[in-house]
Nucleic acid binder design. Sequence first.
DNA 1: TCGACAGTTTGACAATTATCTAACTATCGA
DNA 2: TCGATAGTTAGATAATTGTCAAACTGTCGA
Lengths: 94, 94
Amino acid sequence: MAVKLADKDIARIARALAEPRRFQILKEIGATKGGVVSCGELRDHHKVTAATLSHHLKELETAGLVETTKTGKFMTIALNRGVLDAYLAQLQKI
Amino acid sequence: MAVKLADKDIARIARALAEPRRFQILKEIGATKGGVVSCGELRDHHKVTAATLSHHLKELETAGLVETTKTGKFMTIALNRGVLDAYLAQLQKI
DNA sequence: TCGACAGTTTGACAATTATCTAACTATCGA
DNA sequence: TCGATAGTTAGATAATTGTCAAACTGTCGA
């Protein structure tokens, strides 16, 4: 069974998902093979500044929905399916 | 298979769920037998004015997550599990 | 070492929204 | 019919947040 999320975790995840751009980003990551994407790829698909993108990624990361790893200059963002699934499991139980 | 939701529908549902009080209300409705609750019961559990509660119920209804029926002076709110499930199904596919 | 590049942080601004009060509509019982 | 009660609507306010520009940090190649 998945981890039980506290109410505040659920709220944070829900807020992260409620922003259309972040939802899109998440779908984009999930659609790639391996569930991994580079920051540059995201910038190509979203007409926002790097600052804005950075902000959104931080929201997703704080919510636990993605994990980022930095190798040298570049960053890769990976979907954390475990957290997403845990969130869905909680909603399922409503 | 559940109904396919448009992106804007998903966004609306996600926003409805992202508000802690609304999430709580939804859980409360779901916890009752039959998935139905009266407006007064909600007022007992939430320390907000009737106006605020009305606002939240409208958000949930617009999102399709609940359906309300008015009989005389009173209102009953029912969880619409179909919409919730459709939302979860979409997230599942990410 | 230096410049270019990837991403972050900070501060500001605009849009959204949760909340309240007050006034309103509608229904029921006396 | 009147008063009380259930819920809505409108307008105001405060908090949150998506966005940008500008300045910053860290890394690589020349």
